[in-house]
């Protein structure tokens, strides 16, 4: 009887050890959130700062690249002494409409996200996914100003952000359920709002054009 108990206990300890080992060996990489601070831009400021404003569709997402940041320990950033890196994901957008900048058929947007050896960097706000339609505000190198540069488009409705809401006439603002966004783009499981404000693509592009012409 005593022997049996001992065996059961030993087997239980051994099983636990195996489970703990397997967990450590195969556990998913920890997920990390955005650590950048961007200027608080209105749509107007974004329109002015951007080199390219495009409406298009995500056609491919490349593997993570490490973005180089040349840094100085002095107050003169041109006295480069060191290089830091963080992950970015090159996302190819097939352009339906070039709103600002050269008429292009494709553009690469560098999303601040990716997978490294030790962690997964989540994009701020709306993460790009295959087939997603977006309006993007980009600089000459294909970088945005955080998630405020990214406007997902769903069924010809542009998903607005707080500041954009103030720039569009209130009778042009619609509302859709956050579930609709999640179903279509699997943007983020942590989406907390029940409803999000939208406006028609035409109305949004009219606003953006008014700032750049």
């Amino acid at each position: 009887m005593m022997k049996k108990k001992k065996i059961v206990t030993l087997v239980a300890i051994a099983l636990s050890a195996i489970v703990i080992w397997a967990y450590n060996e195969y556990k998913p990489l920890p997920v990390v959130y955005c650590t950048s601070t961007y200027p608080d831009y209105s749509v107007k400021e974004l329109a002015i700062e951007s080199e390219n404003i495009v409406y298009g569709k995500v056609v491919s997402i490349a593997p993570t690249q490490m973005h180089e940041v040349r840094v100085s320990t002095t107050l003169d950033p041109t006295k480069v002494e060191d290089v830091l890196y963080y992950p970015v994901t090159p996302v190819t957008i097939s352009i339906k409409d070039s709103i600002k900048g050269d008429e292009l058929s494709k553009i690469i947007y560098f999303e601040e996200s990716g997978v490294t050896d030790t962690y997964i960097q989540k994009a701020q706000g709306y993460q790009m996914s295959q087939g997603m339609e977006v309006v993007l505000f980009l600089n000459e190198e294909g970088y945005g100003w955080g998630s405020q540069s990214v406007y997902p488009v769903i069924d010809d409705q542009v998903v607005l952000q707080d500041k954009a809401i103030n720039e569009i006439p209130s009778n042009k603002i619609n509302s859709i359920s956050a579930d609709v966004i999640e179903e279509k783009y699997s943007i983020s499981s942590s989406y907390e709002a029940e409803n999000v404000s939208t406006t028609s693509l035409d109305e949004f592009l009219k606003l953006v054009n008014s700032y750049i012409n």
Binding site: T35, P39, V71
Partner: peptide
Amino acid sequence: NKIYTTSNQTWIAKMIPTYSGS
């Protein structure tokens, strides 16, 4: 750990972490 200046980025400032395990 160091505090740096930089240029040619769209962000105003950024904390760049290094991780070890968790």
